[in-house]
């Protein structure tokens, strides 16, 4: 029992989202120091999984442990990168402001953001190659640059587990390369990263573990072992029509 507790352990997680059950009895264990891709077809519940794990949406049942503890006591060790579309990029803040938001917890109530936090934030922006844009208003950034700002915000938190929702969606090649480099750096530093991903071609080269999701976990493990045609077929092809009919019936009754 000498090994340290897993960064993330999900047991029996079920989520009903907007009356429709989207996740069924999810069991997932993510070992430390790995890069995991969560993949699956549209509507498979990938983002829901991340949000439910972070208690952003209510779970119907199930248990989630971070480093062997509930979220409330492990929050400082976990960082979250939401989908880029989830916010209004016209909001009157600069890139640096957004990154410092990752440090609000550390600053605490009733206190202002200080020079030290701004330095940390600038450093995080530099890591994603965005330091020269620190004082730009966020609507003046391109999609890829906005995504890098979000990534910088998570980096500034200096967490041990990173949960990222579609960080590669709609970004340019350069940003994608930059993000991948950072992910690998994080892994070298012993951090754990879970990424909701949609591009099957790059799974092998970017990640070392993969979780195939379609309402249920179809398979999860090292890319070499589980990322094969058979599992992909089970994830993307042939939905179990009976099961989805039944789920539909549940949704309409709720």
């Amino acid at each position: 029992m000498s090994e340290s507790p897993l960064p993330l352990r999900v047991t029996d997680l079920t989520v009903a989202y907007q009356r429709r059950p989207v996740l069924w009895d999810i069991d997932l264990e993510i070992p430390g120091g790995t890069l995991t891709a969560v993949i699956g077809p549209n509507g498979a519940g990938k983002s829901t999984l991340i949000k439910a794990v972070l208690e952003l949406i209510p779970r119907t049942s199930g248990r989630v442990e971070f480093f062997g503890q509930p979220l409330a006591s492990a929050r400082h060790r976990v960082a979250y990168v939401p989908q880029r579309e989830s916010v209004d990029w016209d909001f009157p803040v600069t890139a640096l402001d957004v990154v410092t938001m990752g440090l609000y917890r550390q600053v605490g109530w009733f206190r202002r953001v200080g020079a030290r936090q701004r330095a940390t934030a600038t450093e995080a922006l530099a890591k994603v190659g965005m330091d020269s844009y620190a004082h730009r208003q966020i609507s003046q950034l391109s999609g890829g640059q906005q995504q890098r700002v979000f990534l910088a915000r998570a980096l500034a938190q200096d967490a041990e587990l990173y949960l990222m929702d579609e960080p590669f969606a709609g970004v340019d090649v350069k940003t994608e390369q930059a993000i991948v480099a950072i992910l690998k750096e994080l892994r070298e530093a012993g951090r754990t990263v879970i990424v909701v991903h949609h591009d099957l071609h790059t799974v092998r080269s970017y990640f070392d573990r993969v979780a195939l999701l379609n309402m249920r976990i179809i398979a999860a493990g090292p890319v070499g072992e589980v990322f094969n045609d058979e599992n992909l077929q089970r994830t993307y092809g042939g939905r179990l029509t009976l099961l989805s009919d039944a789920v539909e019936a549940m949704a309409s009754r709720r």
Binding site: L242, L243, D245, A246, A249, M250, R253
Partner: peptide, 9 residues
């Protein structure tokens, strides 16, 4: 699932 299983299903 059983709670909701009727008719066609």
């Amino acid at each position: 699932l059983g709670y909701f299983t009727q008719g066609a299903i």
